[in-house]
Write a protein that binds this DNA or RNA. Structure first.
Lengths: 141, 141
DNA sequence: CTAAACTTGACTATTTTAGTCAGGTATATA
DNA sequence: TATATACCTGACTAAAATAGTCAAGTTTAG
């Protein structure tokens, strides 16, 4: 099980953004350069972040992106949800008629995977952008 | 981030095996039928489980597989490790010269991903086959 | 008016996943 | 001893997901 680049990039970019948006909007070009992420790819990601009201955009020269909420109110859950990074541990549909794998009985490890999913999601719900900013004060450039 | 079928199947198959191996070795054919997993795929998986000394094999008619340890001593970690299901949250090599993404500075979210990885692995280290058997006593066929 | 920056949608190479397929070899049992 | 059952091994492959690229815009500060 691995985290995709899209999810990782989204978080990296937002942390980067959060550190610099106090004064002016931050351009994707800058984030791209600082974080080593393709500009085109960042554009896709920020389009989703915007749709989910995590960031606001300002067009034109000197434009860029700004956080749309306080860092403390942006949880990893929100970010991942925005970019479609979901935690999936089971194949079977929840509450489907037949249960798991088209079988009559619930698959024997179903509870386990549900537990795992909850365990991971809890982590994401308890981490906000603010936590990450605090974490990185030491290594601030 | 999602769990692959290989990891999920490995656990499902072992739980199935653990429930039936008290008397005789369990054939992959039976597991395949009960769990709805392709026999050929199961063979690949069990080859790895055997190499990692999680199961023993008995060849020939009436043969099959048997657990090689007590259910309490088989943790999810061991199973996942055996079938190469690893938890990967970072792209960058740990302790590489350049740090993350070929950059001079450690990527700003590195600690976060390490934390996440640990969080998930802790779950796997604390769950054993025995826990799963207990969990499913109610639904036992 | 023009360069910087956001906006949108389509396209694609690569990698991973989830298997299949085709041959084996060992052994219990009749 | 014949045979069916079951393990064993390696190569192959279709489909999906990932991680982007590419092209053609629109907006706006200066």
């Amino acid at each position: 099980m691995k985290l995709t680049s899209k999810g990782r990039y989204a978080v990296m970019a937002l942390v980067d953004l959060a550190r610099f948006d106090n004064i002016n909007p931050v351009s994707l070009r800058d984030i791209s350069l600082r974080q080593g992420i393709s500009l085109d790819y960042l554009e896709q990601i920020f389009s989703k972040l915007k749709k989910n009201e995590i960031v606001k955009s300002i067009r034109g020269t000197q434009g860029g992106y700004v956080l749309n909420k306080k860092p403390n109110d942006i949880k990893l859950t929100n970010i991942f949800h925005a970019v479609d990074e979901k935690v999936k541990t089971v194949q079977c549909k929840k509450e489907s008629k037949k249960g798991c794998n088209g079988k009559a009985t619930k698959c024997i490890t179903h509870n386990l995977w549900d537990e795992l999913e909850t365990h991971i999601n809890t982590f994401f719900e308890n981490k906000s952008l603010k936590d990450l900013l605090n974490n990185n004060k030491e290594t601030r450039i």
